[in-house]
């Protein structure tokens, strides 16, 4: 018991010592980690709670994440209930006053922009639908600009000593991003009006931006795994009115998409869902480059 007390005292002393080297950013997903690095530069140290190979709906509030949130100056997540099953618990367990809801260190990206598919009333029979709207906003580059601005504002608020730096970084990001959007929109012109089947409604904003049409989902309801009965209905639907391609994200089980493709001779396209989802998708701009080039390749 005496040793135990000594240990506690020792650790309490540790707690008081400053341990920060730059601003600590905890990003729930790789896209927000990438955006934080782009705006924060070398003034921030960024940790991503998930990788492109994980289904972010299903993360557990595991010990390593609690430890990271404990030290964070900023928590940036998609919000709109995407992380509803683990983020509130992480925030409670981490006991960090800087990143609680309502504080400058708590930034929910999707809540900074207008969301699609906001539901007044949700019912579980609809599947895992988010009442606050579709949270997969990082795949609309225009919404990303609004989020980048909000993020820069927060960084300034938290770390006002580096205001000028963050403003310059934002300006640089906006220029690069604006040029990139211009390029993508030209490249993607042939995709307009193209009809696709998707595994999950991950691509809602991307398709909306590019003017593509989602005609069916492999999941019978959002969040429920594709089932044989539903897939055979899709096969029939595709026989009557074939879509141009079947999209699935790199982290999703590809078997349902491959099965439907074999039955209908429609091409499947695996898309990196976020940064790190393919070898080339090392950052936000390469991610979009990769998505658009894979879609174009499938069209040919």
């Amino acid at each position: 018991m005496r040793k135990f007390k000594l240990m506690i005292v020792g650790l309490l002393l540790l707690a008081v010592l400053p341990v920060h080297a730059g601003l600590q950013v905890f990003a729930c997903e790789p896209e927000w980690a990438a955006l934080s690095s782009a705006i924060g530069g070398d003034k921030v140290s960024v940790y991503s709670a998930t990788t492109a190979y994980q289904d972010v709906h299903r993360i557990q509030a595991r010990p390593s994440l609690i430890a990271k949130v404990r030290k964070a100056d900023l928590v940036i997540c998609s919000g709109a209930e995407l992380e509803a099953a683990w983020l509130p618990l992480l925030l409670r367990r981490a006991a960090n006053p800087k990143v609680q809801p309502g504080k400058p260190g708590y930034l929910m990206a999707a809540m900074q922009v207008e969301r699609l598919d906001v539901h007044q009333a949700v019912d579980r029979s609809m599947g895992d639908v988010h009442g606050a709207g579709n949270p997969h906003v990082h795949l609309d580059p225009k919404r990303m600009m609004i989020i980048a601005e909000a993020l820069a504002q927060r960084l300034v608020e938290i770390d006002s000593g580096n205001t000028e730096f963050y403003q310059q970084q934002l300006l640089r990001f906006m220029q690069q991003w604006g040029d990139a959007i211009h390029k993508w929109e030209q490249q993607a012109a042939p995709l307009k009006g193209v009809e696709v089947v998707v595994h999950h409604k991950d691509w809602r904003y991307l398709l909306d931006w590019l003017g593509m049409k989602e005609v069916a989902t492999l999941e019978p309801k959002p969040g429920l795994p594709p089932k044989a009965g539903h897939l055979s209905k899709l096969k029939q639907q595709m026989a009557e009115q074939p879509a141009s391609m079947i999209l699935y994200a790199n982290y999703q089980n590809k078997r349902p998409a491959v099965w439907l493709a074999e039955q209908t001779a429609i091409a499947t396209v695996e898309l990196p869902y976020t940064v790190g989802g393919s070898e080339a998708a090392t950052d936000l701009i390469p991610l979009y480059d990769e998505i658009i080039s894979r879609l174009l390749a499938a069209l040919e």
Binding site: I8, S64, I66, A67, K68, R70
Partner: peptide
Amino acid sequence: RWLAPTDLFFQV
């Protein structure tokens, strides 16, 4: 309870 400010999760 107290959570240590370390990368390794440590709580007492």
